[in-house]
């Protein structure tokens, strides 16, 4: 079976999500990678090093550089003729274009896969992760999105050949206008080993900034937020952890002032160690927390900062 993985990258670097998607795709067969974008030479060179990759295809255009779904469709649908499966990381970008390709190929997409049983059988979460469904597809060709946190990344020791290909027909009917991407020195939320998240209890954007960010920085972690905190404007939308936001599985997840709504738990309950700080002893977050501290964050977080510093952090 031959598989085409669509790389997730930021223009310069291939993201860790790509390595994880390659690991999942390698369970299906031989893997080629497509790096689509603009000025992606470095990213393509990195993709060529991922273990198990046979060929890196590179396609460049302005529309691809903006990741427009229509341009990716025009590029990938003709390429799909040569492959048995198209495998895409389940990022906001992947979720945007993968179903489009599936529909054009008349294939039922299998989204957010967390386990590959065999070449046509997969496990995926449904109902905010409160149930897992095992599905078998009857489609000869497969379009699959992979939840990266569920797979260990493929290593880097390969040297695949790099091949330039035509960029396809562009984004018919769609035009990029602008973007506001948050620049941060912190690790990316989806890939961070430690995540510190704040909830509605923060009460304001200033408080969120004052409480959550310093402790995340002390630990070298990423900052997350509950939907309630984002809805209230305390944190930007891309901080949201949950069913419809980001799904994270860090080594350590610290939830501060987060009650633990079903949809939030869906985004973090696969973390290795969960810490919850909440003044309500009955908050649902304590049911998934390995370590719970029933306390007002206003006193608990400064104490925690002090204790961490004393412990050499």
């Amino acid at each position: 079976m031959s598989v085409l993985v669509i790389a997730d990258h930021d223009g310069k670097h291939v993201r860790d999500t790509t390595h994880k998607t390659v690991a999942a795709a390698a369970r299906l067969g031989d893997v080629d990678i497509l790096v689509a974008g603009k000025g992606v030479g470095d990213a393509a060179a990195q993709a060529a090093k991922i273990d198990g990759v046979k060929t890196v295809l590179v396609a460049e255009s302005d529309d691809l550089g903006h990741g427009l779904a229509e341009a990716l469709e025009a590029l990938i649908v003709p390429l799909a003729a040569k492959y048995d499966a198209i495998v895409v990381p389940s990022t906001s970008q992947g979720k945007n274009f993968a179903p489009r390709i599936a529909a054009k190929l008349d294939v039922a997409p299998i989204t957010d896969v967390i386990e590959v049983i065999d070449a046509s059988t997969f496990v995926r979460p449904i109902y905010a992760g409160n149930a897992l469904e095992t599905v078998k597809t009857s489609d000869a060709k497969k379009v699959i999105t992979i939840r990266p946190t569920a797979f260990k990344p493929a290593g880097e020791g390969g040297s695949a050949k790099i091949e330039k290909i035509d960029a396809g027909g562009g984004a018919k009917g769609a035009k990029f206008i602008s973007e506001e991407i948050v620049k941060s020195d912190r690790p990316e939320l989806g890939a961070a080993k430690i995540v510190v998240s704040g909830g509605r209890a923060m009460g304001s954007a200033e408080e969120f900034h004052k409480i959550i960010e310093p402790i995340a920085d002390l630990l070298g972690g990423a900052v997350g937020a509950s939907r309630a905190a984002v809805d209230a404007g305390y944190a930007p939308n891309d901080y949201q952890v949950g069913q419809t936001g980001k799904v994270v599985a860090p080594d350590l997840y610290i939830a501060i002032g987060i009650s633990g709504a079903i949809q939030h738990l869906a985004g973090m309950k696969d973390s290795k160690v969960i810490v919850a700080i909440n003044k309500d002893p009955d908050a649902p977050i304590f049911q998934v927390a390995d370590y719970g501290l029933v306390a007002d964050y206003k006193t608990a977080v400064p104490e925690l900062m002090a204790a961490l510093k004393q412990a050499g952090k």
């Binding site: 979460p125 992760g129 599905v135 927390a289 719970g292 608990a300």
Partner: peptide, 21 residues
């Protein structure tokens, strides 16, 4: 797609409460 089965996700083992920071 044929749904072969729908199962419960693995449950997290219950944690503990700690006294202080």
């Amino acid at each position: 797609l044929t749904v072969l089965k729908v199962t419960e996700p693995p449950k997290r083992a219950g944690g503990i409460k700690v006294e202080d920071a």
